[in-house]
Design a protein around this nucleic acid. Structure first.
Length: 461
RNA sequence: GAGAGCAUAGCUCAGUUGGUUAGAGCGUCGGAUUGUGGUUCCGAAGGUCGUGGGUUCGAGACCCAUUGUUCUCCCCA
């Protein structure tokens, strides 16, 4: 058979894995520095846990796992009936009881709901795992991709938002990606909706204005009309969208425009607190009232990260949610969280050439294989180098030097080592640096000296 | 869910209005070269032209279907 991958999935070669690990390790370290602890949840969840949490579209994009034993003749009648239900648009547990996780937030909420009795609140967890979506793959979109989340639950304090802003800032500073951290508050959007026809318009309004930078003001107004808003309401929204200036200027303007809404004013107060707190330490925080974010469970602060110098969708996002675990019967567990879009961060860094010199490398030294007697002499040296932390490989069979050199060249191994019969008698080792041509015979018992030679910077020829 | 493009050697791609035996570069393998590679030179292997039908004296090329893949919209990370 011809081997192939399922649509929208990828193999990662060693170069890519090194780079991805570099990103993940950088972020993980920062999470831990702020007191977040890791959590892992299963790839699959009970289907009830996931269904209905991501909207109608989301349900369609969940990968469902077929039950085993459907071919059992004793259950044939039931199975056929269940299949009929599928044509009615319903998924029966008779056919599927499990599904692949669609994001990390709902499984986390499930975990908190199950364990809230034994957790210490506020509970701070980070989670880095793949998720699966039956979406149609396209540029920057896959059916299997990683999410990298950190959330605090059990605290309404805005200091959590402050911490998350600093995590974002440190992560992207550390990765050397220039970004703007865009920030808004759902209460302001809710206030806008309140003034323009009521809460039930909130979703319609947010979906439309979120598209501002993509489709422009005129198209947004068209969409608002289509969604049933009248002229006066659209006018207010237009004023809202036209707010510009520094963070402080924008806050002043929004206060005037939405002064009627208590909710909006609360949002302004929260934003002012955050911006004030961050204004000296984090330069890249940018107020953006058009930021809406799709997920409906957000209730307060919302974040989104955009790379400033690369054209790419958002590379991170998050926000506050007041009642996530309510879905699982546990009330009053407010939370706030952020997420890093690893796959897109990778693309941005690749484009900006930010990986150079930062990666854990492959093999540092290749021992030539000159025959079984010579290998036995060389092997103790190989093991000592490995104990000393040198990434060391031995060529797998005694073939002519030409081949062994070319192997080292192709794998990008900088040093080769030769221990032949002469060297064995004299306790010597010949080390050669391929890029420069530097070569020296040294004492094979003096491991420190060898390690030192391997760590010396050398100019290429 | 809606729409568009692409599919020829391991990879990147040529292939004329339909015309003999389908090509190139890179890579792979062997040799020049049995303890010092990279360059160079010589040689070789490698193809159901995605699959199935159709039109034609003749199809890699045209038509239909199908599968895969890429991209756009919707939505999202």
């Amino acid at each position: 058979m011809k081997p192939s991958l399922p649509q929208g999935t990828r193999d990662f070669s060693h170069e890519v894995v090194y780079k991805r690990q570099y990103i993940l390790q950088t972020i993980r370290q920062i999470f831990e520095r702020y007191g977040f602890q890791p959590l892992e949840t299963p790839a699959m969840e009970n289907i009830d846990t996931l269904m209905g949490k991501y909207g109608e579209e989301g349900d369609k994009l969940i990968f469902k796992i077929l039950n085993n034993g459907l071919d059992n003749p004793n259950k044939e009648q039931k199975t056929r009936e269940a299949l009929e239900e599928v044509f009615q648009g319903k998924w029966s547990k008779q056919l599927t009881e499990r599904a692949l996780r669609y994001d990390l937030t709902i499984p986390f909420a499930r975990f908190v709901a199950m364990n809230h009795g034994s957790l210490v609140f506020p509970f701070k967890r980070y989670q880095i795992q793949p998720v699966w979506r039956a979406d149609r793959p396209q540029r920057g979109r896959y059916r299997e991709f990683y999410q990298c989340d950190c959330d605090v639950v059990g605290s309404s304090s805005l200091i959590n938002e402050v911490e998350l802003i600093h995590i974002y800032d440190q992560a992207f500073t550390s990765l050397q990606i220039p970004v703007s951290i865009q920030i808004n508050n759902r209460k302001i959007l809710a206030g806008l909706a309140e003034i323009c026809g009521g809460q039930e318009q909130l979703t319609d309004i947010t979906i439309a204005i979120d598209k501002l930078d993509k489709i422009g003001l005129e198209k947004v107004k068209e969409e608002l009309t289509q969604r049933g808003l009248d002229q006066a309401q659209i006018e207010v929204i237009e004023q809202y969208l036209n707010i510009k200036g520094s963070n402080n200027e924008q806050l002043t303007q929004i206060e005037q425009l939405l002064s009627e809404s208590k909710q909006a004013m609360l949002g302004v107060t929260e934003l002012r607190y955050l911006l004030d707190f961050a204004k000296d330490s984090v330069k890249s925080v940018q107020l953006d009232f058009t930021l809406a974010r799709g997920l409906n469970y957000y209730t307060g602060t919302i974040f989104e990260i955009k790379a400033s110098t690369v054209k790419m969708g958002s590379i991170g996002g998050g926000g506050r949610y007041d009642d996530l675990t309510g879905l699982f019967g546990v009330k009053d567990v407010p939370g706030v969280g952020i997420s890093f879009g690893i796959d897109r961060i990778y693309d941005v860094m690749e484009e900006l050439n930010l990986f150079e010199g930062k990666l854990s490398q492959g093999t540092e030294v290749l021992f030539f294989n000159l025959g079984s007697y010579e290998i036995q002499g060389a092997y103790p040296v190989i093991q000592k180098l490995r104990q000393a932390g040198i990434r060391t490989e031995l060529y797998h069979e005694p073939v002519k030097f030409d081949k062994q050199f070319k192997f080292a060249e192709k794998k990008g191994i900088p040093y080769i080592a030769i221990i032949g019969s002469e060297e064995i008698t004299d306790n010597k080792i010949t080390i050669k640096h391929l890029p420069s041509g530097w070569q020296e015979q040294m004492d094979s018992t003096n491991i420190d000296h060898i390690v030192q030679a391997l760590h010396t910077q050398r100019e290429d020829k």
